[in-house]
Write a protein that binds this DNA or RNA. Structure first.
Lengths: 328, 328
DNA sequence: ATATATTATGTAACCGATAACATATTTCGA
DNA sequence: TCGAAATATGTTATCGGTTACATAATATAT
């Protein structure tokens, strides 16, 4: 591999001048610049970012920790993060933590050995202090870890309330909330929003808890719907859960949205593919991912951070699993 | 950050001995090992993989180039690759090429600057010579680039024939093949398999071409089905396309599988979520991803490669979009 | 007991960049 | 015309490891 020395020799200059030219700092004469450019072209020189990282003690790698990239929510974030990172000259390392604290810690440890420049974290099982003690820039995406950690998230409570209210104004009377795993702040907040909406109406809805796994969720939902056939409106804590509900509705031959209305949360692309297409409380996932990446890179590069917390509002996306005509 | 020198000093040994201990090569006495272990624990020392990479001219990063991680096919491969890589101590960099030669080249260039240890490529738009001229280990996943490049792929022709035949034995008579983009070998092969099956029956099926984009595909399918209402069996070049077909079938109020049977190809998780669940020609995506990662790492580490081409057979996964009862 | 092999450890060059510091050359104001 | 400021370039230590080579201590064979 040709290195900076080769370029220097070829251009009849010292490595320092070549380095200055490459980093565009310090003085380099017009003539020298041309000779360097010529040499670089001639030798097809590519600076080693490893060597650069070692000497600068700073890499251009950012770590993205997700629970599981197979969960359709995360590829949308990952894509945005990667696009943004790429455009700033950074590279994204993908990590699947499976929501296991142990595994996540191992990842963080391994990544910090690589001088990872920063971390985007979409999990929050660990004690906030763990994240805060890592001396690498970090951004929490989709989950709030601690006020002290820059965050990009959605107002889940507000969104859930919005979705639930829509269900109610659309004539649903017997509501079921399918909530995500206990202890997950996102799921907790969405439940809160749901309950706020039902409380305002003086309702007493059913709430069931399930993991985000499709099959597990389907089982729980099937049991619940069989036990409570009167349910005519479901608010699900995620689109995946909503789709599981839709799947079971078909299985039980309940017509959607005529007999049973469903509202999801997230706004993943999948929601448009199922039939009927899913009405959901949508987040702008691309915007979230891109914003998180930008915030992280600003931190890494020591720029003034304009905003450390970006809290977005979710928008109701009306599609086919709710009765449009009845809307207010 | 504490470095190897600190450890050496603490253990009252030279850096060479510590390095030998870390790499488990060369001689290190029992007593010294213990002192080193003690020092490492005491100082919480983590070797810098950047420095290691520089001196070894070898990193532990592997690049995974996919067209778009949002396409639900790729997260399943990515997950497997990442799991395998992780277990061998490697780290995966994610790259979205958008099937653009230009972008892919830029990625490869940037990655090779980082001493990327190897590449897993799931695209094949470029001239094989490009891939072969990169002097990094490479594995083609899901797509055959060249016989000289280690490959993990599925026998698409055979699989497509299998799926199509199933459609035929199940009573479908007017077949439609929704094929993926022209020039994509995978799509070409699947079409070939489809045509082999219909030719054997002396049929003259309809074939339409579309990109893998859901909306584009849905539009094409809708137009086709309106033009040819007699179609009672669809073989789709991918599960996403099959799901688009299912979506349109619902929209046009064609009952699936009674009036219209659909068979997809890929075996992505999504196929189980739609209603009815998708009958498909399934690949073991996890196995493929894991195998590709293993093959790559074996190459990187200079191990004897047992097998440079892994060609798997696809399996028919019968679910709800075909008429089970009519099966042979 | 001595030669030789094996085990154990240290010194220092090297990987490919950056950057502090030194030095040389040019520009320009007074 | 002289000296300071601005411009241009070079030398070399450094980042944190690995490893070739040298050397020392021990074990083993004859």
């Amino acid at each position: 591999m040709v290195n900076i020395k080769d370029v220097a020799k070829n251009a009849n200059l010292s490595v320092a001048t070549v380095s200055r030219y490459l980093n565009k700092n310090g003085y380099v004469s017009k003539k020298s610049s041309e000779r360097i450019e010529q040499a670089i072209r001639e030798l097809d020189y590519k600076p080693s970012s490893i060597a650069r990282s070692l000497s600068k003690k700073q890499s251009n790698i950012i770590g993205l920790i997700v629970p599981d990239i197979k969960n359709p929510y995360f590829p949308e974030l990952a894509r945005a993060v990667e696009d943004m990172a790429w455009s700033y000259g950074y590279t994204v390392v993908l990590c699947n933590s499976d929501e296991q604290t142990e595994k996540e810690l191992l990842y963080i440890e391994r990544l910090s050995q690589t001088y990872v420049a920063g971390l985007i974290v979409t999990t929050s099982l660990m004690d906030p202090s763990v994240y805060m003690s890592i001396n690498t820039p970090i951004v929490a995406l989709d989950r709030i870890i601690d006020v002290a950690i820059p965050t990009v998230a959605t107002d889940n409570r507000k969104g859930a309330k919005l979705g639930t209210k829509y269900l109610l104004t659309n004539g649903a009377e017997n509501l079921l909330c399918i909530r995500g795993p206990q202890g997950l702040k996102t799921a907790d907040d969405r439940l809160t929003g749901f309950l706020e909406a039902t409380d305002e109406q003086g309702l007493d809805p059913i709430v069931v808890t399930t993991s985000f796994d499709f099959k597990d969720a389907a089982k729980v939902i099937e049991q619940t719907l069989m036990l409570h056939p009167q349910v005519d409106g479901i608010f699900a804590s995620s689109d995946t859960l909503a789709i599981a509900a839709l799947h079971i509705a078909h299985k039980l031959e309940k017509r959607v949205p005529e007999e049973l209305q469903i509202v999801g949360f997230d706004g993943i692309a999948l929601g448009e593919m199922v039939s009927p297409a899913l009405t959901t409380v949508g987040q702008d996932l691309y915007k979230m991912g891109a914003a998180a990446a930008t915030m992280l890179i600003e931190q890494i590069e020591g720029k003034e951070i304009k905003q450390t917390v970006l809290n977005l509002d979710a928008q109701l996306i009306v599609r086919g699993t709710t009765r449009k005509e009845a809307a207010k």
